[in-house]
Design a protein around this nucleic acid. Structure first.
Length: 671
DNA sequence: CGCGGAGACCTTTTT
DNA sequence: GGTCTCCGCG
């Protein structure tokens, strides 16, 4: 069946104009996009190039569904970041001139959490479970390593590596042995130990009543597979499922989606295989390549018109990505004309590069908020930050330390974490150790005393277990315990006290005194905590607040000009996905830095100086993502000299292979 | 047993 | 820069 989309669209509008915004509809979407928006139910795969308006298409699709009478709560919109979800839903709201769509929108993890809170009892957990972040899981792993003395005879990989392996196994739905064989062959002799650790921390998490990020997805799948009634409920609830950035979904996530789609098969996925940059985390682009095998009746649309960049920028991106073997062929065409050639800039040093960027920012014919610096690794931004600060250019760093992951924020949150979930040993110890005179040992013995009281705060008499402590420790434990008692005072229903009130109580307790005493940067810590309290006022329950802390990434901006509206954005390329700026700088295009060469690979059999092709292809896609963020101007820069580790001299450096492999017609050079 | 200081080491990307 | 480890003192 072929449809003349414009006709359909006109007919549709004549019947039901999209309020006063119908005009926007016509202006913004092209024929192909309209066809996607108006496609009748059923599976739908949209393979769309960079800058093609994928998000817009999804937004309009959701709006149309709502207008067609699909209850908003029957729409599940899965996006990559919570921010993207919020933005998309608010665009739908504006489009329909309503206050709230009521659609379910968010990341896989967010949605999993919403569903699990209601049903996790079926899996043996309690619904006040803690969500563990990467650091917490790393701690669990290292505790296991210590417990089994795995470090004694040989050098054991870092907890983060172990964690990554476990995570990949979960997300790709395969055994640990497969992951090790495929991606970590040099660890083949450690498989038994890895299994041991895995089993151990799985048990441990059950005891802690805690789930890590992967568990959220893993348990959601289990819940849906094992409990027919729950599955039926959500399959019927979500009449339409839309997934953005499908190229970056993992096997596990695709499985969950396939289950939720059920018999209705109203699924639409949108993605660009050329922008798959999360394989290291278990993204599996078999999902997008194999979509039509799983849904043979799927309608497939290719969006190849680019509305963002000039043709010169696209040409450079296209010619670069052509070198990748694994891809759908797409030929992007710009609607915006040729534009200026991208510029490759050779700088002598890292500092000079920072100077160059700052100078061009100042002389650019664009607002500061239309300019971004996108880099491969966080530390690439160091000198640039310094230079921008020096010249008083306001900027905002979007990568790096997240606000809620800062030690002092996690410190104060650990009180709440514990009150919310009294089985959370990690939180108990973390909070307790903040008090002077309490270290590892004391915390551990107090924990075992506490667990004897069956995890109930009010039932524990503080004095009952402090007798053997030093007098200083005694006093601090009484303080600590008194505070917990106060926080949990309401007894049965912890949720009846507002999170912000609880944070205030912590601050008003002796804790503030200790903080003043312990930290030299007390003032700035206090400032952060006040910000946290401010942020927390929008949450009514503790569980909701803590979930948000765990699942939403808000980065700390050490940048200058907090109050300025116009700020240059400094971001990792990963975090810049889906965004666009008039002018984009990509620094550190240096051999070994971008693409990254993992020097830490202790694989003796890996004698090849080259990086394996899968990894290099992912790096190239990353380069592609970076280049296609630019609308008008693209500056690619590298340093000729870099400080060499181990010697006093600077080492001569080659430009990145991504620059060397470009044909000379694709760019101009500048010193 | 807690804690602070000194020095080494390492830096991919993140929900 | 940030974190981890070791050491010596109270």
């Amino acid at each position: 069946m072929t449809l003349k989309s414009n006709d359909v669209y006109r007919e549709y509008l004549s019947k039901e104009p999209l309020n006063d915004r119908g005009v926007e509809f016509e202006k913004e979407l092209n024929e192909e996009q309209l066809r996607v928006v108006f496609s009748e139910g059923g599976p739908c795969l949209v393979i769309a190039g960079a800058g093609s308006g994928k998000t817009r298409t999804l937004v309009y699709r959701v709006a149309k569904l709502v207008q067609d009478g699909v209850p908003p709560s029957g729409i599940l919109l899965v996006t990559f970041t919570n921010k993207a979800a919020r933005e998309m839903l608010s665009r739908v709201e504006r489009l329909l001139s309503i206050d709230e769509t009521g659609a379910w929108g968010g990341t896989f993890h967010h949605i999993a959490n919403l569903i699990l809170r209601r049903h996790i009892g079926l899996l043996g957990f309690r619904n006040n479970y803690t969500i563990l972040d990467e650091e917490d899981r790393g701690d669990l792993v290292s505790m296991a390593i210590t417990e089994f003395s795995l470090n004694e005879n040989r050098r054991f990989p870092k907890p983060a590596t172990v964690s990554a392996i476990l995570s990949l196994a979960a997300n790709l739905s395969v055994g640990i042995d497969r992951i090790v064989a495929d991606r970590f062959p040099f660890m083949a002799d450690l498989i038994d130990d890895l299994m041991l650790i895995h089993e151990h921390i799985t048990e441990r998490k059950l005891k802690l009543n805690a789930l890590d990020f992967d568990d959220l997805l893993l348990f959601l799948k289990r819940l849906l597979v094992e409990h027919d009634d729950v599955r039926t409920h959500y399959v019927q609830l979500f009449r339409h499922i839309l997934v953005d950035e499908y190229q970056d979904t993992s096997k596990l996530q695709a499985d969950v989606v396939d289950i939720l789609v059920g018999g209705q098969r109203n699924i639409m996925v949108v993605g660009d295989d050329a922008q798959s940059i999360y394989a290291f985390r278990g993204a599996n682009y078999e999902n997008i390549l194999g979509f039509t095998d799983r849904y043979p009746d799927a309608a497939v649309y290719k969006l190849q018109t680019n509305y963002r960049s000039t043709q010169s920028i696209l040409d450079l991106a296209n010619v670069s990505i052509m070198r990748n073997k694994k891809q759908y062929l797409k030929q992007l065409t710009a609607t915006r004309g040729t534009g200026d050639l991208p510029v490759i800039v050779r700088c002598a040093s890292t500092e000079e590069q920072a100077g160059f960027i700052a100078k061009h920012i100042l002389s650019a014919d664009a607002g500061l908020d239309e300019i971004a610096v996108l880099y491969r690794s966080h530390y690439h931004s160091m000198e640039i930050q310094m230079e921008l600060t020096r010249r008083g250019i306001p900027y905002e760093v979007r990568s790096g330390v997240r606000f809620f992951e800062q030690a002092h924020i996690k410190d104060i949150l650990s009180f709440l974490r514990f009150v919310n979930n009294p089985k959370d040993e990690l939180a108990f110890k973390r909070a307790l150790k903040l008090y002077p005179g309490i270290g590892m040992k004391t915390a551990a013995s107090l924990w075992s005393a506490f667990t004897m009281q069956e995890y109930r705060i009010p039932s524990l008499g503080a004095d009952g277990i402090v007798q053997e402590l030093s007098s200083r420790a005694k006093k601090t434990f009484r303080d600590f315990y008194g505070l917990l008692f106060l926080l949990a005072e309401t007894g049965a229903d912890v949720g009846s006290k507002l999170p912000s009130d609880m944070l205030m109580m912590i601050l008003k307790s002796e804790y503030e005194e200790y903080m003043k005493f312990t930290y030299t940067n007390f003032e700035s810590r206090l400032e952060d905590i006040k910000q946290l309290i401010n942020y927390s006022t929008r949450f009514k329950t503790l569980t909701e607040f803590l979930s948000e802390m765990a699942l939403v990434a808000v980065t700390v901006s050490p940048g200058t000009g907090e109050s300025e509206k116009e700020r240059v954005v400094l971001s990792s390329i990963h975090q810049a996905k889906g965004l666009e700026w008039k002018i984009v700088f990509v620094p550190w295009l240096v051999d070994g830095k971008f693409p990254v060469i993992r020097s830490g690979r202790n694989d003796p059999s890996d004698a090849t100086p080259d990086i394996d092709s899968d990894a290099i292809e992912e790096e190239r896609r990353l380069f592609y993502v970076a280049a296609t963020r630019a609308k008008d101007r693209l500056y690619l820069s590298y340093q000729g000299w870099l400080p060499d580790k181990g010697s006093y001299r600077n080492a001569l450096i080659k430009p990145s292979r991504f620059l060397r492999e470009l044909p000379s017609y694709a760019y101009e050079t500048q010193e």
